[in-house]
């Protein structure tokens, strides 16, 4: 696939600005905490700009680009600076380095948004391609099915995440059929086209659970809230974790193992 990531400089400093995403703000604090912990474990100083809200994607995808641009401008103001912006979501990261550029192609402050795009990284892309971490020290003795979320297409993220997961001791990374297929979330699509969204989601779930995983993993909790919601409705106890949670837990397991 043709790359959609901008030309980014490999950052010199390990100071990063964390964009936690609105889904972590509202539902998945555990994923955001894990993100902070693993970034710090590799020597990053994590700053959390307080004024942050959302990346602007809901309105952008809904076709309301006027509303979306307002939110993106707010984002640009809150995340001003030179530090890399690290996002534990392929979708929100792609919104800033790809979607926002579309929304601003005819705007006078396009250059500001381009500069923002050039500093924005999805978490595992930053770890592997930004910091050069090629393997993850840890133990995670479970079967994991990785959902390759769609908005990491054309970026280094899915490969980066799989590389890290694969390097974890005792982690059994399962094969997933039709890995290129969407889970059916699509933001507002999931509520304006509920029948399509459900049917696509149930098919995805079949593929993800085919090889009997202990956990599902994703870089996107948008997919997570949809897949997890379908699972819960089916009274399944299978959990969807953010990749960051697995990386963090693998580290903790490793420390326990060493101290024992």
């Amino acid at each position: 696939m043709t790359s959609i990531t901008p030309q980014r400089q490999i950052p010199a400093s390990k100071r990063v600005l964390l964009m936690a995403t609105c889904l972590c703000d509202a539902f998945f604090d555990s994923a955001a905490k894990a993100t902070v912990e693993i970034l710090e474990s590799v020597g990053c100083e994590v700053l959390f700009p307080d004024g942050q809200t959302c990346c602007g994607q809901p309105a952008f995808n809904a076709g309301d680009w006027v509303a979306s641009r307002k939110v993106i401008r707010h984002f640009a103001k809150v995340f001003a600076g030179n530090e890399p912006i690290v996002v534990p979501s392929g979708s929100c990261a792609a919104m800033i380095f790809h979607g926002a550029l579309l929304a601003f192609e005819n705007e006078s402050d396009k250059a500001t948004i381009q500069a923002l795009a050039n500093r924005t990284w999805e978490l595992t892309d930053y770890l592997v391609n930004g910091l050069g971490i090629k393997e993850w020290k840890g133990i995670f003795p479970h079967r994991v099915a990785f959902h390759r979320s769609c908005h990491t297409r054309g970026t280094g993220s899915a490969d980066a995440a799989q590389q890290l997961l694969q390097s974890i001791r005792n982690l059994d990374l399962l094969t997933v059929g039709e890995a290129e297929q969407c889970c059916g979330f699509g933001g507002t699509f999931s509520v304006s086209f509920p029948v399509l969204s459900q049917k696509i989601g149930e098919l995805k779930l079949q593929h993800l659970t085919e090889n009997k995983p202990d956990y599902l993993a994703s870089l996107d909790l948008g997919c997570g809230i949809h897949i997890g919601g379908l699972l819960a409705k089916q009274a399944s106890s299978l959990q969807v974790l953010h990749v960051a949670q697995i990386l963090r837990d693998a580290q903790l397991n490793n420390q326990r193992f060493i101290t024992q």
Partner: peptide, 25 residues
């Protein structure tokens, strides 16, 4: 709420934990 009912027709919602991460941070 139309969009909530569309969502809940086939999916449930996770527990709302707004602000928890900011407090922790």
């Amino acid at each position: 709420i139309p969009s909530a009912s569309a969502w809940l027709s086939s999916r449930s919602l996770p527990e709302f934990r707004g602000g928890q991460f900011r407090k922790w941070m």
